[in-house]
Computed example of a mutant assay.
Amino acid sequence: MSEIKVRLCCLPYAGASASVYMRWKRQLPSYIELIPLELAARGRRFGEAPYSSVEDAVSDIDLMMQNILSDDKPVILFGHSMGALLSYEWLRRQHENKGRLPERAILSARSAPQFVKMEESIVGLPDGPFIEKVADYGAADASVLSLPEMRDVFVPILRADFAIIERHTQQRIESKKVADKIPVPVQVWYGEDDNSLRGEMEGWKNWFQHDFQVDCFPGNHFYIVEHEELVVSRLAACCYSIMQEQLQV
């Protein structure tokens, strides 16, 4: 059993780097290979230009995923908030291109596409009001971003991330195209105190073909931080079930 590795690929939320998932590594069993995917303009890729669109981000993710999917090791794709949006858009493109899909996807803290609506743009706000809005959305801690050294690093990344999300939301609203359902077993996770998502997570079943499951966790939008041990144990259980399925093939 220990010879089989399940690859757990994780996409971060707006403004975050891959390092937000590195704490999970010491808690996961040895048969799980944790692969936090680093997006442009943050972490070890700080200094690169930010994405100009969700499509650019998906293309970059595709380059990373093709190498990960190049052998027969099972793969689980996890994305939180913006990471869930990018995960879905990559899955959709991969399905359209008839590429290999992961064995399972977990979309966390993101409304199903049919519920996404265009809010008033916040990207052009001055730093103070922008930080307040981002904090209201649950996407960052205002007290941390009030520190000049943190603001100078993270606010430009957050602005770039929110810009591509806003643009993508507008394009989705304007588009009449209906995407094919993706043939990947999917779980959608959210925090029970994340009121903006309550009642909207079930809608993800309209975008996937089979094996759909909704899981509610204690906590708010960042339940993955508040209840890290519980989240990691659920991820480990998911990876174990995938590994067992592979052993039976």
Rank of each mutant, 00 (worst) to 15 (best):
K5Q: 15
R7G: 03
L11T: 02
L11D: 06
P12W: 04
S19W: 10
L28V: 12
P29G: 15
S30R: 15
L34I: 12
A40I: 09
E48I: 03
V54P: 01
D56H: 10
A57N: 10
D62V: 09
Q66C: 11
N67L: 08
L69C: 15
D71N: 15
L77I: 11
S81G: 06
S81F: 07
A84W: 02
A84S: 12
A84D: 05
L86F: 03
W90E: 04
N97H: 06
K98R: 10
K98N: 12
G99E: 15
R100F: 01
P102G: 00
R104F: 03
R104W: 03
A112C: 03
Q114R: 08
F115H: 12
V116I: 11
V116T: 00
S121K: 11
V123A: 11
G124Y: 02
P129F: 12
I131F: 12
V134M: 01
D136W: 10
S143H: 09
S146A: 13
L147T: 07
E149T: 10
E149G: 02
D152Y: 07
V153S: 00
I157D: 06
L158D: 07
D161E: 05
F162L: 04
A163N: 14
R167N: 14
H168T: 03
T169L: 00
T169Q: 06
K176V: 09
K181Q: 15
P183R: 08
P183G: 01
Q187I: 02
Q187M: 12
V188T: 13
L197W: 02
W204D: 03
N206P: 03
F208D: 10
Q213H: 10
V214P: 04
F217E: 05
H221P: 04
F222E: 00
Y223W: 05
V225K: 13
E226L: 05
L230I: 08
V231N: 07
V232T: 10
R234T: 06
C238H: 01
M243E: 14
E245W: 02
